[in-house]
C-alpha cells in the first residue's frame, strides 16, 4: 500500500511522462475496442442472417405438395440446413396480403393460383449458402431460387478483413505503447537513480526496488484501458441512432452494460500486462545495482 501511494505521488510529480504513457495506451486500446465492436457487430449481422431463411426455392405450378415435401426432406438430410419450411400457395397469398394490406389495388386481382409454392431454407452456417443453392437448383421441379449469396459472401469477407486489420493495427499500436512504456520507465529509473542507490545500500532487495516501477507500468495500462473504454462507451452512445439506422432490422441497442464491464476488465488486464512487461524490460536494461 505504501509503495502504491509513493508511486502515485511520483506520477503527480512528473505528470507529463505519465500522461504520454497513459495516452499512448488509451489510443491503442481505443482502436482495439473499436475493432472488438466491429468484429462482434459483424458476427451479430452474420448471426441475424443465418437465423433468417437465406435460400427461397419457388416451385413450378404442377409440382405436388408431396414432391415438395420430399425435396425439403432431402435438403434437410444434407445436414447443412437448420430449418426447411414449406410455404404453400395459400400461405404465400396470406403473406402477400399482409405485406400489401395498405394497397388494395395490388390485392384485387391476386389469387392463390398466381403465387408459387416455395420452401424457405435457413442454413446452419452462412458459408454453406452457396452449396445449398447448388443442391436446390439441381432439382428440376424448382423454377427459381432467391439467395442473398453476394451479401453474405461480402460480409464474411469483410469480417475476415476487419480481423486481419485488427491484428495488424492493434499489434503495431501496442508495440508503440510498449516502447513508450519502456522509455518512460527507463527515464523514471534514471531520475530515481539516487534513491535506487540508497535503497540498494540500506538493504532493499531487487524486488523491493523494482516493485514501484512494475506498479507504475501496470497503472499506465489500467488508466489507458479505462480511458479507452469510456471513450468507446461515449462514442457508441452518441452514434447509436446512426448505427441502428444503418443496421436496419438487426437490433443491437441497448447494449448490455455488462459488455462494457467485460471489455474494460479484459483490456485492463492485457494493458496492465503490457505495462508490467514493458517495466520489466526497462528494469532489466536500466536498473544497474550490485
Amino acid at each position: 500500500m505504501r509503495q502504491i501511494k509513493s508511486t502515485l505521488k511520483l506520477l503527480r510529480r512528473s505528470p507529463y511522462q505519465a500522461l504520454a504513457a497513459a495516452l499512448a495506451m488509451s489510443l491503442t486500446f481505443f482502436i482495439a475496442s473499436i475493432f472488438v465492436i466491429l468484429i462482434i457487430g459483424g458476427q451479430l449481422v452474420l448471426n441475424y442472417i443465418e437465423q433468417r431463411p437465406q435460400v427461397i426455392a419457388f416451385f413450378k405450378d404442377d409440382v405436388s405438395e408431396a414432391k415438395i415435401n420430399e425435396i425439403a426432406s432431402s435438403i434437410k438430410s444434407t445436414g447443412l440446413a437448420r430449418e426447411v419450411k414449406y410455404v404453400s400457395k395459400e400461405e404465400a397469398l396470406a403473406i402477400y396480403r399482409e405485406r400489401n394490406k395498405d394497397d388494395p389495388l395490388l390485392l384485387e386481382s391476386v389469387s392463390a393460383d398466381f403465387l408459387p409454392a416455395s420452401i424457405d431454407i435457413s442454413v446452419k452456417k452462412a458459408a454453406d449458402i452457396d452449396q445449398i443453392t447448388k443442391i436446390v437448383k439441381g432439382h428440376t421441379e424448382v423454377e427459381r431460387v432467391i439467395t442473398p449469396e453476394n451479401l453474405v459472401e461480402q460480409l464474411v469477407k469483410w469480417t475476415k478483413t476487419i480481423r486481419l486489420g485488427a491484428v495488424i493495427f492493434v499489434s503495431t499500436l501496442a508495440s508503440v505503447s510498449f516502447l513508450i512504456i519502456i522509455m518512460v520507465i527507463g527515464m523514471r529509473i534514471a531520475i530515481r537513480r539516487d534513491e535506487v542507490s540508497i535503497m540498494n545500500l540500506v538493504g532493499a532487495t531487487r524486488w523491493y526496488i523494482s516493485r514501484p516501477f512494475f506498479i507504475e507500468g501496470a497503472l499506465y495500462g489500467i488508466i489507458g484501458a479505462s480511458i479507452a473504454v469510456i471513450l468507446v462507451y461515449a462514442a457508441l452512445l452518441f452514434y447509436s441512432p446512426n448505427i441502428q439506422e444503418f443496421l436496419g432490422p438487426i437490433q443491437v441497442f441497448p447494449i448490455n452494460p455488462l459488455f462494457f464491464v467485460y471489455l474494460w476488465a479484459g483490456e485492463a488486464l492485457i494493458a496492465a500486462l503490457v505495462g508490467i512487461i514493458g517495466a520489466a524490460i526497462a528494469l532489466f536494461r536500466y536498473l544497474k545495482i550490485r
Binding site: 545500500l201 540500506v202 538493504g203
Partner: peptide, 23 residues
C-alpha cells in the same frame, strides 16, 4: 547475490556527499 540485502541491513553507511533524497 540474493542475500546481499540481508548483509547490508546489518551495516549503516554515511557518505561524504550525504546521499540524502532532496525531495
Amino acid at each position: 547475490g540474493g542475500k546481499i540485502p540481508q548483509l547490508r541491513r546489518k551495516i549503516g553507511t554515511v557518505f561524504q556527499d550525504f546521499k540524502l533524497l532532496l525531495n
